[in-house]
Simulated scan of single mutants.
Amino acid sequence: MIVQILVALAGLVVLTFAADHLVLGSSRLAERARINPVVVGVVVIGLGTSAPEFLVSGVAAARGDTGLAVGNIAGSNILNLTLVLGIAALAGSIAVTSQVIRREVPLAVGAVVLFAFLAWAGLNSITGGVLAIAGAGAMYLLLRWATRSRSNDEIADDAKEFTQANAQVDVPVPPSRLPAWFEPVRALLGLGGVLAGAQLLVSNASAIAEDLGVPQVIIGFTLVALGTSLPELVTTVQAQRRGEADLVVGNLFGSNLFNSLVGGAVVGFASGSHGTGKATVALSVTMILTAGLAWALLRRGLALTRVEALVLLAAYLLTMPLLLST
């Protein structure tokens, strides 16, 4: 089992770095294609940063490990709004605008609720189609709000800043001096690396669950979800240190939106003949309650204090024994 754990960790490392290059290469390609920077920020970067979660779940569902697939998405949704948001708020109070609380956050909470109910009923091609349609509708709303919002320029600036930055491990050449063919190759290699890392992580996580004699969904919402949520934790803490509170909240709730709708659709379609991916009642209810708790705390005063951060961290610690006992 030690070898399987080490290989799974290696898969997670490959997944993390490959996803970084996939998002960077894709966003730079979109920029060179003169796509609206707001679209790059909302769609390309937003979807790309959630790629580890739904690609890992998609690979798991395609392999027949549907419990692992559902557990990963559900676990990431819970982690983002308890552990990750709580750690970010411990570093300093998080204040958000009323506009974010009125529009983006309720949309993300609604996506989590929809996913929770459909995952409890069972993810298949039909429920996957429902989630895909809901995802397209949510994307339309996000783009419409972004283009009409006063923060339009801010989103465009964030996207431009992202595309000009380097990956965590990158070539020592300024972006402006890279040849034209480099970014497409970067994106393709990043996609290949994400799929390879996901395969290593999923296959060994599944074997670990079998060796331990525990349901795959438990490994999914604990070890796998924690691993795929690490990029969100890093980017959230960095954004908090820069004082970009709206970006912190937007990234985490946005990640849950994409996880629930796009990730849920991917799991539903990938399950195919392997059967439906189902979440337990406890897991579905916990997803809804943690999303509602984070929303309520942020709505109360439009800020998240260190005391409220401790409430979120306590909620995460309390959910684990409950879910593990089911």
Results as ranks from 00 to 15, higher is better:
237 V>F: 04
298 L>R: 03
263 G>P: 01
168 Q>M: 15
75 G>D: 01
221 F>Q: 05
102 R>D: 11
276 T>F: 05
274 H>R: 12
231 P>T: 13
70 V>R: 00
147 T>C: 14
14 V>N: 04
169 V>F: 15
325 S>F: 13
277 G>L: 00
143 L>G: 00
123 L>H: 00
15 L>Q: 05
310 L>C: 08
163 T>G: 02
62 A>L: 14
177 R>G: 02
203 S>T: 15
231 P>N: 10
207 A>H: 14
322 L>H: 04
2 I>L: 15
221 F>A: 07
303 A>F: 15
248 V>M: 06
120 W>L: 01
67 G>K: 01
18 A>K: 01
89 A>G: 15
302 L>M: 09
132 A>E: 08
239 A>P: 10
73 I>F: 01
33 A>P: 12
259 N>V: 09
13 V>M: 01
322 L>D: 04
63 R>M: 14
186 R>S: 04
278 K>W: 08
232 E>Q: 10
13 V>G: 05
73 I>Q: 03
132 A>N: 11
293 L>F: 10
62 A>N: 10
303 A>C: 15
311 V>F: 08
5 I>L: 13
240 Q>G: 10
45 I>N: 01
164 Q>F: 08
273 S>Y: 13
220 G>M: 02
3 V>E: 15
216 Q>S: 09
230 L>G: 13
202 V>Q: 05
130 V>I: 07
53 E>N: 08
64 G>S: 04
235 T>P: 12
76 S>V: 10
28 R>H: 03
42 V>A: 03
20 D>V: 11
295 W>E: 13
223 L>F: 06
181 W>K: 08
307 V>L: 14
2 I>Q: 15
8 A>Y: 00
174 P>F: 03
123 L>V: 00
208 I>Q: 00
94 I>R: 13
100 V>E: 14
184 P>S: 04
43 V>R: 06
204 N>G: 13
7 V>A: 02
134 A>W: 06
65 D>T: 14
188 L>R: 12
67 G>N: 04
199 Q>C: 15
29 L>R: 11
258 F>I: 08
177 R>T: 06
16 T>P: 07
192 G>L: 09
276 T>L: 06
33 A>R: 12
45 I>L: 04
26 S>C: 01
228 T>Y: 11
220 G>V: 01
260 S>A: 11
211 D>H: 15
84 V>A: 02
274 H>C: 03
313 L>N: 13
259 N>D: 05
176 S>V: 08
323 L>T: 01
110 G>I: 14
144 R>K: 09
69 A>P: 01
174 P>Q: 05
167 A>P: 06
80 N>W: 02
319 T>R: 10
160 K>N: 10
283 L>Y: 00
66 T>F: 13
264 G>W: 07
66 T>H: 09
73 I>Y: 00
108 A>F: 05
269 F>M: 01
235 T>E: 11
79 L>T: 14
93 S>Y: 15
167 A>G: 12
108 A>D: 04
44 V>N: 02
319 T>P: 08
169 V>L: 14
13 V>L: 03
289 L>I: 09
250 G>F: 08
193 G>D: 00
223 L>S: 01
210 E>V: 11
5 I>F: 15
185 V>E: 09
178 L>V: 02
80 N>S: 09
99 Q>H: 08
112 V>F: 05
117 F>D: 04
55 L>N: 01
204 N>I: 12
12 L>M: 03
